[in-house]
Measured scan of single mutants.
Amino acid sequence: SAVVMEEGSPGEVPVLVEPPGLEDVEAALGMDRRTDAYSRSSSVSSQEEKSLHAEELVGRGIPIERVVSSEGGRPSVDLSFQPSQPLSKSSSSPELQTLQDILGDPGDKADVGRLSPEVKARSQSGTLDGESAAWSASGEDSRGQPEGPLPSSSPRSPSGLRPRGYTISDSAPSRRGKRVERDALKSRATASNAEKVPGINPSFVFLQLYHSPFFGDESNKPILLPNESQSFERSVQLLDQIPSYDTHKIAVLYVGEGQSNSELAILSNEHGSYRYTEFLTGLGRLIELKDCQPDKVYLGGLDVCGEDGQFTYCWHDDIMQAVFHIATLMPTKDVDKHRCDKKRHLGNDFVSIVYNDSGEDFKLGTIKGQFNFVHVIVTPLDYECNLVSLQCRKDMEGLVDTSVAKIVSDRNLPFVARQMALHANMASQVHHSRSNPTDIYPSKWIARLRHIKRLRQRICEEAAYSNPSLPLVHPPSHSKAPAQTPAEPTPGYEVGQRKRLISSVEDFTEFV
């Protein structure tokens, strides 16, 4: 048969007729292969192709491409040299491709048809291009793949890379869960390890502090508590009631339409708007009261037996805890006409967050109470924005700035309102402590230090009264110190430094 060459192609190359033996071998191979691939376009007849790359030819070592076609129900084999250009295909004639002069020997084609199974398996396991790669995943090629499931790999992101949580363990979102698992493993320790309690022994800490320079003076030496005195035992138990972190309780009120001037209507609300609910979820963490331990979680007086509701929101960081007394989460009882059960919590909070959804101005004093010092007013606006402002009593104007209003988005509203309420509550605590000038409020841990110092002074006084020969370590507060001759004046800087060093040991009130 003659071949018409394309323009620009090399000279004529004689194409030899395939021997009958080659056709029989390739026909047997075509019957084993699956003929249901995917359909081509209507211009080209339905056909199945599979590209198999052999590394070497037997005796020649030339890479070839073998295409199996099922045109007219008769499979045909096409061998081509890759750099050459194939002729145009037609549905009426068999596929013809040019070969190099080196394939002119018909014996070479017979060798190609009689490829060993080793070469076929190696060509099938190679990388296939384009559409033949999808075909190689079918059941027909499963014989050339190794048996057994593939090893499982770690989760992959859409980009093909490992997620960040699997790369950096410290930033993994499941870090707290692993800590819980470690605690569970520790709890399952053997009885021999049960006595080993991690941490620092208080006796060891005391020993280090006792021999430090801070205890060089007799006034700073630790003293032993009497065991037989019940009054001192009660004082030590009272110390446990003062937490070592700051605590805040903040009221949250929802004002519906037409309720801006009605205290009873505001306290009777059992739910609010959708934006109000989203605002609550951002204030803190939802907790169930019956599962809380009052000595570990500050509840601000809420009952854990269901008297004040089942849930509330709280927030904490390293040095403070805040609980929100939310009116809509507290039960509304029919027998309580004046809502006294709610007001006994909300009316005693220094700061209230008022979500004013009424469309009218909310005035300070609508919720009557002796300790309502500051109101954080949240007014929802259009386009997911809110107006946040402050209202306070006249005696609080020096501590709280009420002249600045803020426009905040719904997303950042819980954070801004919480921070403003916490700052206002700190100012309210300082303002409330002014009624007792001898006990200015600095912080909870300073209050613990003052309680310890008062307890020490009482013990020293009782020891001096029981044994008059012992001198008083600290003179009583009601006694007057003996007159001392004025010492020589020293520079102001040295006096300030000495006073600062003494105050650092005794108390921190002056620095606050």
Rank of each mutant, 00 (worst) to 15 (best):
R454F: 11
S219D: 15
K343Y: 09
V255S: 01
K249H: 15
D303N: 13
S229N: 12
M396E: 02
G300W: 06
G284M: 05
H345I: 14
L299R: 14
S466Q: 10
L239M: 06
T281V: 06
L329W: 04
K480E: 15
T312R: 07
H248V: 15
C392H: 04
H451W: 09
K337T: 13
K368F: 09
K290Y: 07
G359I: 02
E263Y: 05
L364K: 12
N412C: 07
I287E: 09
T277I: 05
P468S: 11
A405S: 11
V408Q: 00
E257G: 04
G309C: 13
L302E: 14
S504V: 07
V400R: 03
D303F: 02
L283T: 00
S477G: 13
T509M: 06
H316D: 15
P468M: 12
F350E: 02
L413H: 00
D395A: 08
V408T: 03
G398A: 08
V323K: 11
A483L: 08
R418D: 00
I446M: 07
S260L: 04
S262C: 11
R450L: 07
I459F: 13
A417L: 02
P471F: 07
W445L: 07
H474I: 10
C385L: 04
D401S: 05
R393K: 11
T328N: 03
R434I: 10
G258L: 03
L472F: 12
L455K: 05
I502W: 09
Q241N: 12
A463E: 14
Q241P: 06
I377A: 03
I326V: 14
S273Q: 01
G369Y: 05
G496L: 13
Q370E: 15
F415L: 07
K368S: 14
A405E: 12
L267T: 04
A417P: 01
N412A: 08
S428N: 02
S219Y: 06
P491E: 15
D439F: 08
F371W: 12
S479T: 08
P491T: 10
Y274R: 09
S260Q: 13
Y465L: 15
D395L: 03
S433Q: 10
L283E: 00
R234T: 13
K394M: 07
Y276S: 00
L381W: 03
F311P: 08
S235I: 14
K406L: 15
S229Y: 08
S231G: 12
C460S: 11
D395V: 06
A447K: 15
S219C: 12
L472M: 13
R275G: 01
G347N: 15
Y465N: 09
Y276H: 01
I440S: 11
P331Y: 04
A481R: 10
T281A: 12
K296L: 05
K363M: 09
Q321I: 09
F373C: 15
A421D: 00
N372H: 08
P414K: 00
H432Y: 15
S435Y: 11
V404Q: 08
Q310R: 15
T332Y: 08
A251G: 15
I319G: 05
P471I: 06
E461L: 10
T277M: 12
P468V: 11
V473I: 07
R458Y: 14
I367V: 13
P243E: 14
A322V: 14
S409V: 02
K406W: 13
I319E: 13
D507Y: 14
M396Y: 03
G256L: 00
D382Q: 08
H478N: 15
S219A: 08
L280I: 10
F350Y: 05
K296P: 14
K394E: 10
A481H: 12
I407C: 07
R344P: 06
N348V: 05
Q321V: 14
D318P: 14
E233P: 04
D317H: 02
F373L: 15
N261Q: 10
Y465C: 15
D308V: 09
S477W: 09
A464P: 11
L225I: 14
G272F: 02
R450T: 08
D361E: 12
F362S: 01
E288K: 11
F311E: 06
E288N: 10
E263A: 05
E384A: 08
